[in-house]
Design a protein around this nucleic acid. Structure first.
Lengths: 261, 261
DNA sequence: CGGGAAGTTGAAGAGCGTCAAAAGTAGTGG
DNA sequence: CCACTACTTTTGACGCTCTTCAACTTCCCG
């Protein structure tokens, strides 16, 4: 077995690296060198104030498949993903599972302000996150309204995205759900890569199913259907090439023409 | 036909009433007398600053069934419902409809910060709303951070609620969806009434179906089933009495015991 | 009181889930 | 390095929940 398989995440490189950096160059915070910052809400923080952000952040690592936190636990922390990807899900008593979201690099995790987490979170792959204590972050947001505005904007965007998902779950057919899913992954990951037709699926078929309100088998069947109709190509289990983006977009939008396809 | 059936809402009593009040007692804004304010985000605004809120608000009225705005229109306004109820929905090209939410008295409408509305809104019954120009409200929020904090909190709560709905739409059976729906309506409306077992359904069966991702017929059949098993009683088409709340709560939570009921 | 919309009920069918087994993949240890 | 094992994915057969279509009933409002 590799790494620590504790329930809580490994903290080896936690405050260690920041402190070391601080000793070498006290005026430069580790956040200012963070490659993820330009993409994350941290951009909203003025450059000269990044040291205050760095002061309240801890870097944590977590292995693939390990839980970050479980629904019902005291919601003490917020996170920003800096490496890897996280899945967020809710469970029903009999084990039915709904993945409510995937959290990728630069995304913020933990917006709900409840006493306890309203969902569980688990790493899809080996990941790294910036961790904030809730109270400390709140204090910081009071002092830096631009940062709070940034988070508010994130919340509004997520709200719009959630309504899109509600439409998907309530009214779209399996084929339309898969098409929407591919486009969502493409737009989330594709902005930095020129290979915008190649979508990588870092999660299992079961996770996709639980995200789209489908069974594993239906996800698999639908992907093969799309493959057989020439709309996509499966380069590997976790790499989908979109061959006919217009058709995928029409499907995703619930277009009436292409259902027989 | 009654009232004005214009596409845009009637503005008869718009700025008129506020001005009249202001003339009589310039130091008291109409917002300070608003019976809905204690329940709405406006509570976050300091009492002495309510005049600034009143300065940017317009009261509008809208008849039952009339549209407030349509998806795709420029998102120029935000609203707070002061009377009646609004339904918010998205459409697919072939007419499939998903009601993404119902907006009741004291609720804020229009949180998404997109150029255009990402959903359509229509009055369930004759309603009144406070209307804000987006830019003016933004300016106001910049000047009164407490108000912005209040709206941020609303956004976070709605996000948590949206994830609850995603679980419902993705993984719950029809009976569980109806049970969840009844409890949601009860908790939203029941706080002021002592008749907490009596839930009123101000929307049609079709609206309920489009909210829960079900057909009108399934909504009807499921309500009948619940009635026949003695869990609820239909006092009228739009008044449901919850006879066995524990069973309804277990159903809503996805409890494994009562599916055969 | 009557006409039209909303709601209910029934029967048949479709889409997707479930169960089961085969095929493919990845990680492990000899 | 390769075989063994365990898991993931795929594919097939069947069944169930919910939808669709249609007729009937109830309710509401002029």
């Amino acid at each position: 077995m590799d790494k620590s398989h504790d329930r809580l995440c490994s903290l080896e490189s936690a405050a260690a690296l920041p402190q070391a950096t601080a000793r070498l160059a006290p005026e430069v915070s580790p956040c200012s060198a963070c490659p993820v910052r330009p993409l994350a809400v941290c951009t909203a923080m003025p450059y000269e104030d990044l040291k205050h952000l760095a002061a309240v952040v801890t870097t944590i690592r977590i292995g693939a498949g390990q839980p970050l936190f479980d629904e019902g636990e005291p919601a003490d922390h917020c996170f920003i993903v800096t490496k890897g990807a996280i899945k967020v899900y809710k469970l029903l008593p009999d084990g039915r599972r709904q993945v409510t979201g995937f959290v990728f690099v630069a995304d913020f995790l933990g917006l709900a302000n409840k006493e306890t987490y309203v969902y569980s979170a688990e790493a899809l792959s080996s990941s790294e996150l910036c961790r904030f204590r809730r109270e400390e972050l709140e204090d910081l947001l009071d002092r830096f309204p631009q940062m709070e505005k940034g988070l508010f904007a994130v919340a509004k965007d997520e709200l719009a995205a959630a309504q899109e998902r509600i439409l998907l779950l309530g009214r779209k057919w399996a084929k339309e759900r898969i098409a929407s899913f591919l486009l969502m992954l493409s737009s989330r990951a594709g902005q930095n890569s020129q290979e915008s037709d190649l979508v990588s699926l870092p999660m299992s078929r079961a996770d996709i199913g639980d995200y789209l309100g489908l069974s594993t088998e239906t996800v698999s069947r639908t992907l093969t259907e799309l493959k057989q109709s020439g709309v996509i190509h499966l380069e590997s289990k976790s790499k989908v090439r979109m061959l006919d983006r217009p058709v995928i977009e029409t499907l995703a939008g619930g277009g009436e023409l292409l259902l027989g396809l």
